[in-house]
Amino acid sequence: MSERLLIAVLGNRNSGKSTTWNRLFGSVVKTGKYERQLFLNAAQWVNVFLVSGSPEEREIAVEEILPESLPQIVLCSTQYREDVTETFDYFFHQGYEVFVQWLNPGYSDDEPYEDKFSLRDYLLENGATIQIRDGQEDPASRLKEIRQLIFGWTSCRNLIVTEFP
């Protein structure tokens, strides 16, 4: 059982990756230097590290963005390009369980696109879980899926902090 979790949102430019994180946190969020609290409901939260703005688009290796002491949970934007495998390789080699929500079509895409880089096969061969979601639809249901995944994963590892309001 892996003790680290990566939740990646994958898509073209302007597909809805940042919108996903902004809506998940309930405000505009950017990559920080430290972990932050992600509320799973009104009373429970977990610490996560956010990489908003894909390493591929920034042209910087993900390991240069992450803190030296690797976070247990990383939320990361990833851009659909051939070199995105470098980002995923890093997480696979660090022992992260990888969950990918692929926005296809993305918010600004005209239509769904073919997987010309065979990324789906690469991810599945490396043990990732993939969901393909429409980035043009209201993100509420896919945000709920992400919260439920995090809740389930963190529950069995006793990582949830409960503070009643």
Rank of each mutant, 00 (worst) to 15 (best):
K116N: 13
D83P: 11
P165N: 08
I150N: 02
I73H: 01
S69T: 06
N12R: 15
V46H: 07
L50W: 04
Y122R: 07
Q44M: 14
N104A: 07
E163W: 03
Q131F: 10
I7N: 04
R4T: 07
I65D: 07
A43V: 06
P112V: 15
P71F: 00
E68Y: 05
F117A: 11
Q101D: 08
L38G: 00
E114A: 13
A128N: 08
E3H: 14
L103N: 06
K116H: 13
A42G: 11
F91T: 01
C156D: 11
P165Q: 07
E68F: 06
G135E: 04
R13D: 09
S155W: 00
P71C: 05
T31G: 13
R157N: 04
I130N: 03
V62Q: 02
Q148K: 06
H93N: 10
P139N: 03
S141Y: 05
S18W: 03
Y80C: 02
D83G: 01
G152E: 13
R147Q: 08
S54A: 06
T162H: 07
S69L: 06
Q136Y: 11
I160Q: 01
Y107W: 12
D115E: 13
L40C: 10
Y122C: 11
G11Y: 01
I60W: 02
T19D: 13
T78E: 00
T20H: 09
N12D: 14
R58H: 03
Y96W: 03
P139I: 05
E68K: 09
W153L: 08
R142P: 00
I73V: 04
E3Y: 15
I160D: 01
L66I: 07
S27M: 05
I65C: 05
F117Y: 14
I130G: 05
L10S: 04
Y107S: 06
W102V: 09
Y113A: 09
D134M: 09
L123W: 14
L5W: 02
L5N: 01
G32A: 14
G32K: 11
T31V: 15
G135I: 08
N14M: 08
N158W: 03
V98C: 03
L10E: 02
Q37F: 12
Q148M: 05
F164K: 14
K30R: 12
N22Y: 07
T154H: 02
G135Y: 04
S69A: 10
A43E: 15
